[in-house]
Design a protein around this nucleic acid. Structure first.
Length: 868
RNA sequence: GGGCGAAUAGCUCAGUUGGCAGAGCGCCUCCCUUACAAGGAGGAUGUCGGGGGUUCAAGUCCCUCUUCGCCCACCA
């Protein structure tokens, strides 16, 4: 019995390493066979560092699905890769440079990009190691990066196509400018924040000397670029004044007082200064005024890309925008223009990328017109061609899509896909795949646009560019559309929506059938996990101390259709304990299997039939849960079955049968371990592979991923209910023993039973009695009634009369309460008439049982009282 | 302002079509019973956030309110 030498504690470290190496060496992760293809192109993590808990969950779910499908004979491709993550990576490397006293502008574009590639190798390597430690069976041979040469080609292809179709256009707009990173960012790359500030009331005198009009502003520094003052045409206070000119204080030039719908008469003074270059709303007013945004005289810009005042000749030139505000306010006050200052909570846009206050800034950018791309993508979700799980997210998606805005594509960065636009000597843009192509078209020298594309432009092609598109590859034909996208809810707009639009537009087919949005992993006390807050947890640390299987299971058992999960060390300890339980139960089983692999399962006793039925139920539950992407339910089914049913009952019942050499429990236990290993394998791949291979009869060269997925579902209802009765009885008698102060170790010779509607062997062995006698004991005894059978144990001399009576009281009280509520229902004719007959029948039975129990309790009370 | 989610045992959370409230952890008692003390047996614990309504019957369905989290929009 070599197996008994196995440690009583499961050691994940060596087991996990051993199997991962073997899986890789045997090429398990690439698609195999001729089964129906199943594909997931994993969300490529950013090469900005290392993976966190959210990643661990995200990819664990995908690994579960992949392994589950593989076991069902599908041809599975889980395609991994990483994202160059333009701004995010750019920022990481810029921060590194800063610590070295360098910056990208001194380095130059080429050297900087080279430096980022170095970082990409480093971060990518870390991430890959983490993936492998978590045990993911992804096809590393097909690993892709969003800046691979072929991928870049796909990006150019889409851009040029859309440019030629007029979907991509260049324009001067007020964009969200991040002065820290010196680039534009999109609408969805920033968040709102309210900060304490001031609302300044500034007097703008009329040119004709007839007094002044007062405007309210939170940003006096932008007045340098004011082009007008606007009032609402319905605002009675200003009727007749519109058309006058006002003098812009400090700048001392004349600007018009205009009427526009935009000012809200209720706010401030009802008069607004209009600065089209530094405010999106003012920009719209400027458009309505018919301004030429290319003419700096008509639309001046007073803040530069670095967030400093750019107003040559003024004393403010070169000042930081916040410093300039102070100076300008001071000057306005000194010159008597400042009417009043109020405290005011200013709603601001903060860049998600740098944390800087977004500066709305007029600049020339590339945009993508979204409406025509969105229409089919809306239809695909509305018609349920693409299904979201949980379903509520399809509404989130649709609402955003129906109100979609044009997308600012260009970023003033160096890390990313450079925009394939070349300008000829007349500054006419030409879209081309290379400089040579562009020159051929231009017939002369060209200059490439310096900007790069928003990183999501390339991410949007992920489901097909990774499969070789625009080439017509075998992979593309076989694996597109992929089956499911597993992702976080915060990138539904950024990524999911765009993949759907791109897929439908460029490949003419949805990119995936299902979208599963998993829960956000929070800390134990409900905080967002974040490195900067110090609340981030590193999965690798937990894997080191608890094992990858425990790590995965701990996350998966909390992941259903919920929106968030709280994760702490407690949860992973529980999962580790489960691994240990699996290990020890298997150890026990192996000690008794004697290396035999009994082929035929012959259920002989009630518990055999029961456990086989429960096993079947477990498999069916796991499968149904997986179909609905409900990891929690699947994990719970596995845990409950294995621990509470198989270990706590079946193994306990099987012990003495194994001792006496019975074949049936051996065969059944082996069968259960085999199936359990299979059903649990997607969730806990290493420990299940290890145990499965220890089972006698398992081909040492086989792997669970390519074994089979047993079908569950056949139930033996009568065995289940009969077993449940016996379990009830066992629990009642154990409780009785405990109450009587008898420890399990004290095996009592005799238990007396009043009937025989129970399985004597189950009850006797599980309540630790030598024998059961179907008569009434003489002398003092304690007893209990369970499932209509009365059990007594003789306790002459041991019984504490007072205690026993108190116990009977408690029991009686509880039964009476139950009986009362049941009778109340039954005595209500409305209930008996209207409720479903089976419900009424069940209640009648319950009432009868309770009454009988009560009678027996009364009888017992008399007996006890009669004792000396 | 609009939308989504959450509120159930001390904590973290399950609760499928309405039919007598569950698990894990924690707590109490007992047990190192030859697979496992990272374990076993037993036990205590609930105005299911508040208030209405529908129903014979509501944690579950409807209305409403409160608190928390998230998303979207707007704001001089």
């Amino acid at each position: 019995m070599t197996d008994s030498t196995l440690s009583t504690r499961y050691d994940p470290k060596q087991v996990e390493q051993k199997w991962y190496t073997r899986w890789e060496q045997n090429g398990l992760f690439a698609p195999r066979g001729e089964g129906e293809p199943y594909c997931i192109t994993i969300p490529p993590p950013n090469v900005t560092g290392s993976l966190h808990m959210g990643h661990a969950l995200c990819y664990s779910v995908q690994d579960v699905l992949g392994r589950w499908m593989r076991m069902q004979g599908r041809q599975v491709l889980i395609l991994p890769g990483m994202d160059h993550a333009g701004i995010a990576t750019h920022k990481v490397v810029e921060a590194q440079l800063k610590t070295e006293g360098l910056n990208r502008f001194d380095m130059g574009r080429e050297a900087f990009v080279e430096r980022v590639w170095q970082w990409k190798e480093e971060s990518g390597g870390t991430i890959l190691r983490q993936f492998k430690r978590l045990g993911f069976a992804f096809d590393w041979s097909r690993e892709r990066f969003t800046m691979d040469a072929a991928y870049h080609d796909a990006v150019l292809d889409v851009f040029i196509d859309w440019f030629q179709r007029g979907l991509i256009y260049r324009g001067k707009r007020v964009v969200n400018w991040d002065p820290g990173l010196r680039t534009s960012v999109s609408d969805i790359e920033m968040h709102d924040e309210v900060r304490h500030g001031k609302l300044y009331h500034v007097r703008y005198p009329f040119e004709d000397g007839s007094g002044s009009i007062t405007i309210a502003t939170t940003r006096p520094e932008t007045m340098l670029a004011d082009v007008a003052v606007a009032v609402n045409p319905k605002d009675a206070r200003y009727v007749g004044l519109v058309g006058k000119k006002v003098i812009l204080p400090l700048v001392r030039c004349a600007i018009p007082l205009i009427a526009d719908e935009y000012p809200d008469p209720e706010f401030g003074t009802g008069a607004v200064k209009i600065t089209p270059a530094h405010d999106p709303n003012d920009f719209l007013v400027g458009q309505r005024m018919g301004l030429d945004f290319n003419d700096p005289k008509q639309v001046p810009v007073c803040i530069g890309e670095d967030g400093r005042i750019h107003f040559p000749g003024s004393p403010y030139d070169g000042l930081d925008r916040f410093e300039a505000r102070k100076r300008i306010v001071a000057d306005l006050e000194a010159e008597g223009y400042l009417e009043k200052v109020e405290d005011y909570d200013i709603p601001l846009k903060i860049s998600d990328r740098s944390g800087q206050v977004i500066e709305p800034l007029l600049s020339e950018q590339w945009f993508c017109s979204m409406h025509s791309l969105a229409a089919p993508a809306i239809e695909a979700v509305r018609s349920k061609k693409i299904k979201f799980t949980p379903e509520r997210y399809s509404d989130v998606y649709l609402r955003w899509m129906e109100d979609i805005r044009d997308w600012c594509l260009s970023r003033q960065l160096w890390w990313g896909h450079r925009i394939p636009i070349y300008y000829d000597d007349e500054c006419k843009p030409i879209a081309a795949k290379s400089e040579a192509d562009a020159m051929a078209i231009a017939g002369g020298p060209v200059t490439q646009d310096p900007d790069v594309l928003d990183t999501w432009f390339s991410s949007a092609l992920w489901p097909f560019a990774t499969l070789g598109w625009p080439e017509k590859t075998d992979d593309l034909a076989k694996f597109y559309p992929s089956n499911v996208l597993v992702t976080a809810r915060d990138i539904i707009y950024l990524w999911v929506a765009r993949m759907i639009m791109d897929g439908l537009d460029r490949v003419d087919e949805i990119p995936f059938h299902d979208v599963y949005i998993y829960a956000t992993v929070l800390t134990e006390d409900g905080k967002r996990m974040s490195k900067s807050l110090g609340t981030g947890l590193d999965p690798l640390e937990y894997i080191d101390s608890f094992g990858a299987d425990a790590m995965r299971f701990a996350l998966l058992i909390q992941t259903g259709h919920n929106q968030e999960i709280r994760f702490g060390e407690k949860r992973i300890e529980e999962a580790r304990n489960f691994c240990n339980k699996i290990w020890n139960a298997s150890r026990f089983a192996l000690m008794h299997l004697n290396g035999e692999a009994p082929s035929k399962i012959a259920p002989e006793r009630l518990e055999d039939k029961w456990i086989l039925s429960r096993m079947s139920f477990c498999g069916a539950t796991v499968e149904a849960a997986l179909r609905e992407y409900n990891m929690m339910e699947a994990c719970k089914a596995l845990l409950d079955f294995f621990w509470s049913e198989f270990c706590d009952w079946y193994i306990e019942l099987a012990k003495h049968r194994l001792e006496s050499g019975e074949a049936a429990p051996r065969a059944i236990i082996r069968n259960i371990l085999d199936r359990f290993c299979k059903w649990a394998h997607p969730f806990m791949p290493h420990i299940t592979e290890e145990i499965w291979h220890m089972l006698p009869g398992v081909d040492p060269d086989a792997f669970l991923d390519y074994s089979d997925w047993p079908v569950g579902g056949e139930r033996d209802e009568s065995a289940e209910s009969e077993m449940a009765r016996n379990q009830e009885i066992v629990r009642a008698i154990r409780s009785l023993r405990q109450d009587a102060g008898i420890t399990p170790k004290q095996t009592l010779p005799l238990l007396f039973a009043s009937g025989d509607n129970f399985d004597a062997e189950i009850v006797r062995s599980q309540t630790w009695f030598g024998n059961i006698d179907r008569s009434t004991p003489e002398g003092a005894s304690v007893g209990t009634v369970a499932e209509g059978v009365e059990f007594k144990l003789p306790l002459a001399g041991l019984i504490d009369k007072g205690k026993e009576l108190a116990r009977l009281d408690r029991e009686e009280e509880k039964i009476s309460r139950d009986l009362d509520s049941t009778l109340r229902r039954l005595n209500n004719p409305e209930f008996t008439h209207r409720a479903k007959p089976e419900v009424v029948q069940r209640d009648r039975q319950t009432a009868a049982d309770l009454q009988e129990k009560l009678a027996k309790l009364a009888e017992r009370r008399d007996q006890i009282k009669a004792l000396p």
